[in-house]
Amino acid sequence: MPADDVLVAPNILEYPYARSVGPVIGRFMTGLRDGRIFGIRASDGRVIVPPTEYDPVTSETLGEDRFVEVGQAGVVTTWAWVHQPRERHPLQRPFGWALVRLDGADTGLLHAVDAGDESRMATGMRVRVRWRDERVGEIQDIACFAPEAG
């Protein structure tokens, strides 16, 4: 049997998951919808973005009184370049996945950086949030980050 007689077909699996977010991630998502970014202050004083429900060191519950609004620009701490974006990626042109430490935060937020070309990506570069026009309360409300001018 010639090899070209062997059939091939696309096989696509889709799972329409939804999840409840709870009070902490819920606050983060609500903030995104409103064009604001919230972290949470841990017992050691660090500001964690996105906020966690429990303290990473002591495991104590981190409550309502610990939310902190952080800046909308920050520093790339590490990154990887995507040459060929996939259909569900946030950008349909080459981009960088990066951990962005926002101003006022102590941890990195994973998101896309629309740098245009890999040569414009660098650890330590400044980037700023580019909001989506219509926001609903999900991480895609941040369309991507873009290099700060200058």
């Binding site: 696509i12 699996l13 889709e14 799972y15 329409p16 998951y17 939804a18 999840r19 409840s20 977010v21 819920g26 998502m29 609500t30 919808r33 259909e87 569900r88 309360g137 999900e138």
Partner: peptide, 9 residues
């Protein structure tokens, strides 16, 4: 916000 959609494909 209390719910998010997290589809997988």
């Amino acid at each position: 916000v209390t719910r998010i959609s997290t589809p997988m494909r």
